[in-house]
Design a protein around this nucleic acid. Structure first.
Lengths: 364, 364
DNA sequence: CTTTATTGCACAATCGATGGTGCAAAGGCT
DNA sequence: AGCCTTTGCACCATCGATTGTGCAATAAAG
């Protein structure tokens, strides 16, 4: 083994462990070549640079022996690409967003990207601050999942030359992959109505819609589907039964309680817009009227295993997270076109217990 | 405005937006000073470097006008510190880990650190690969939450000069912050026994422990607490009733079904080790014996709002995530000593419905 | 056996921020 | 006024990888 040009970091005996970090210069020293050759070999561009196969092999072996790992900071600084992909997401307090985060991370890793997810609590300022922070790390791309103001984010990212893509909630400034909220809501509502009719219940006047933000696209589409399904069943949707009070359990609990106080009777059926809002309803009922837990017909837009198992009178819409994330990455990969701007993925309506079969997580 | 020394990137008119990125050189051009002065001002070290207050003010203002944000890659490359903190965590499919991730991110951001969380599915190889990836980005520290093999990770990180800290599951090679699993399990089991006794049920022979990995510290401690509580109540804990079959819902479902087939009768009470395992049990019961959902006495180590609201016969242990994460960061901040190696945080036992008051998420 | 083309690689600039060092100007002191 | 100290800042090397360029050595062509 030759020891030529020991210019940098004389550490010719890299202990694999404990040395500060093996660099291409260390390897170059060992291999008796230049750092640029080593760099080219180790980042895969060596064929373009006409490095001989033999030398490449040697260098790769030395790199392995020395336990080389590229310094991504240096790479990112020079090449501007960081191999990091960021995602902002509202919360991890429900299965839907949890599944999004998990699948996002897996898909990112499968592509050699370092996923950086961060929950931003549906607060626009926090979303923006987080995005800016990610930008200063030169993330290659940012995914806005359920973002309050995706267009402002898209604009800022574009100014930095960083592409964005929206998930769950759409924006006008970037491609968006969302659920087909209208159809999902329509089907869910129709299933509830059908069930109520089969049971001979009077559903027309006491059918609530609860939860969500009236300003967000998903909620407004779900309300539209809800109303249309009611109309379609020959009834008239009532404005006063639509309570888009925000998502938080505390808020839906208050709104639900107020509505009950107002009307003086339990609803026949309820379309609850998110499992978080459903939490508020169940909380109130568990404390005040447990019997109603078994009599009210629930429809939940979003799925939760416990809610599903426990309530026999609960229908759910389960958004197809796998399809959403896969579709998104196909676009990111460039395999699918960026048009149309909004891609809707059909969610799964679980309106009988057969749906439970798909429920349990299969992880350890 | 003076235009002196327009050496680099002649972009004297930075449009705040759309320019590739404002650097200290751009600001230096505008301010007519050197880049090192700008750098010192903007990273706060300017007093040590004897930059005049007046010049600092000027530079700060120009920086604000130009929308400067430091290139963290460059900073990290030079200073080795990246201001990133990584965390690996098993999954986002339950409230416990979701809460950990969320609070971790908040606490990290509050300290100006960029949180990078990544779920690694309880797979040691994936944990290791993820950690190595984080290391190549020079993260300042790594948190191992619920890691299968925290000691190997700690060793590798130490070799890179990166400190680690364990959360949820302890290791020997780094400080660990975990729940007091033994006491939690003891109390939960005792509460179940007391309840069974009050109801005059025969609990001694048909009291199951289900879920978890027998090899992990938490599970073994919970089993110990479970056994001691039974002994303490004057009975004999039965080995054949302890089914540490893994956490996954699918696994607990199978184990539960097999046990039923074996004994031919429903258990009186069950200690279920994680909400994920509880899912498997509920899944089986929902399909095969709904009535048992209301008769079996459940104890769940970990809390889930829906499980809590729906089952009147469910006691839970809710781990004190806030305290755990806060304690961890106090150690990271250096405010608390790194000793003792294992810090146990008391979890909260919810054995009556009063506990529900704390349940709903208060977010939007 | 030249001449041209190709192969195989080394050199050096560069990305943006940090921090050691040096030096002129201003201020203090006798 | 002359000397010393302090102030205020500029210069430059550096972190590790990427990439344009140049130049020997070898191969191919005539």
């Amino acid at each position: 083994m030759e020891y030529t040009k020991l210019v940098k970091g004389e550490s010719s005996v890299a202990t694999t462990e404990n040395k500060k970090q093996v660099t291409i210069y260390d390897i170059a020293d060992q291999a008796g070549t230049s750092a640029s050759t080593v760099g080219a070999v180790l980042n895969g561009s060596w064929r373009n640079r006409r490095i001989s196969e033999k030398r490449a092999k040697t260098i790769q072996q030395i790199a392995t022996e020395m336990g080389y790992a590229p310094n991504m900071q240096a790479r990112a600084l020079r090449s501007v690409r960081s191999s990091m992909i960021g995602m902002i997401i509202p919360m991890y307090d429900n299965r839907y967003f949890g599944a999004i985060a998990e699948r996002f991370e897996m898909a990112a890793r499968a592509r050699g990207l370092l996923p950086m997810t961060s929950c931003t609590h549906r607060e626009p300022e926090l979303e923006l601050a987080t995005v800016k922070q990610m930008l200063s790390y030169n993330v290659d791309r940012i995914v806005c999942a359920g973002a309050s103001d995706p267009d402002t984010i898209a604009r800022i990212c574009k100014a930095h030359g960083v592409p964005t893509i929206n998930l769950d909630l759409p924006g006008a400034a970037a491609t968006s992959i969302i659920s087909d909220n209208y159809t999902g809501a329509f089907k869910l509502t129709s299933a509830l109505i059908k069930h109520a009719q089969a049971k001979g219940l009077d559903w027309q006047n006491e059918f609530l819609f609860l939860g969500g933000r009236p300003t967000d696209h998903n909620t407004s589409e779900r309300i539209r589907g809800f109303r249309d399904a009611i109309s379609n069943a020959g009834a008239r949707p009532l404005d006063e039964n639509i309570l888009a009070c925000g998502y938080a359990a505390a808020k839906s609990k208050v709104a639900f309680a107020a509505k009950l106080k107002d009307t003086g009777q339990m609803p026949t059926a309820m379309f609850v817009n998110s499992t978080i809002s459903l939490e508020g309803v169940f909380d109130w009922l568990a404390q005040n009227d447990r019997a109603a837990l078994d009599t009210i017909l629930f429809g939940s837009f979003d799925w939760d295993p416990f809610a599903q198992y426990m309530a026999q009178n609960l229908f759910s819409v389960r958004q197809d997270v796998s399809a959403m994330v896969d579709t998104m990455f196909r676009i990111i990969d460039g395999e699918a076109p960026h048009e149309p701007k909004i891609i809707q993925i059909a969610p799964i309506v679980i309106s009988d217990k057969a749906g439970c079969d798909t429920a349990p997580s299969s992880r350890i």
